[in-house]
């Protein structure tokens, strides 16, 4: 995958240069946006509810035993908004939407639809990549906001319901508000925004590069998802490290 990094960066740059045209493509941006939301909102809710729940379940009893139970809301809240929601949802969306983007653009490539666009003097970057990138850049952070809230809720439900923890709803949220600041949430959202760009650019690039019939499309889809996830995890570390410098 790394031999293509140059091309991926170039595609990203060209798409950025096309940003002023986004208003003309707003219809397609909205279509993509709703498609992303429609396809993943329920999954995002289920996934983040249980992530919050299991986090409370794993840490809650231990903390309660050491009579640190009142920290539970803070620990669950902090790790969800800074790390778990951004990365888990981005991986989910890479699998759910990145794959679809690679498949759709890949089949357009293989069946010469992209050549047809070019003969009509329609730039495939403006027509295909730009709307997907912009829609993803908005949709994924919004999904992660939902995921953070639902994840907190999941943690609170388990904290109250599990009889080894028995921390009330109010106590959970009180603890959460003591530890989690809005800049922690902003931090998570910023990382998500970067992951959204990675997913869209990597998947569109992989789609545009597709060669060789239906098999090629399959290969592109796999590569798009795997490469997105690898890059997300690497960037997660790098971004976290960089954001630390700003937080001092």
């Amino acid at each position: 995958m790394f031999e293509n990094i140059g091309e991926i960066v170039l595609l990203f740059w060209r798409t950025l240069l096309a940003l002023p045209l986004v208003w003309r493509q707003r219809q397609k941006v909205f279509e993509q946006f709703f498609e992303i939301g429609n396809a993943s909102l329920l999954m995002v809710c289920i996934l983040s509810f249980f992530i919050g729940g299991v986090l409370a379940l794993q840490t809650g009893p231990l903390l309660t035993e050491k009579s640190l139970g009142s920290y539970l809301g803070g620990i669950v809240g902090y790790s969800i908004c800074r790390e778990l929601a951004p990365i888990m949802m981005s991986i989910l969306i890479a699998g759910r939407i990145g794959s679809a983007m690679a498949a759709e653009i890949g089949s357009m490539r293989v069946y010469q639809e992209i050549d047809a666009l070019r003969t009509m003097n329609i730039n495939p970057i403006h027509y295909l990549v730009l709307p997907r990138l912009v829609a993803m850049a908005f949709a994924l952070p919004m999904l992660v906001i939902v995921a953070i809230l639902v994840g907190w809720f999941g943690g609170a439900v388990v904290a109250e319901g599990n009889n080894h923890i028995g921390l009330s709803f109010q106590a959970f949220y009180f603890s959460l508000r003591q530890f989690v600041e809005s800049k922690d949430v902003a931090n998570g959202i910023f990382k998500t925004f970067c992951f959204a760009l990675i997913i869209a650019v990597v998947s569109c690039h992989q789609g545009l590069m597709t060669i060789g019939g239906p098999r090629g499309i399959g290969r592109s889809v796999t590569k798009a998802v795997v490469n997105s996830i690898v890059l997300i995890v690497i960037f997660d570390y790098v971004l976290t490290r960089v954001l630390m410098l700003f937080n001092k």
Partner: peptide
């Protein structure tokens, strides 16, 4: 300049009418 592809190369996600009018719509 225009090329009529051997396979047609219509955009499968658009209707026939949208395909035919694509050049005018996009430009």
């Amino acid at each position: 300049l225009a090329l009529v592809f051997q396979s047609g190369a219509l955009l499968n996600s658009l209707t026939v009418g949208e395909n035919v009018g694509l050049y005018l719509t996009e430009h």
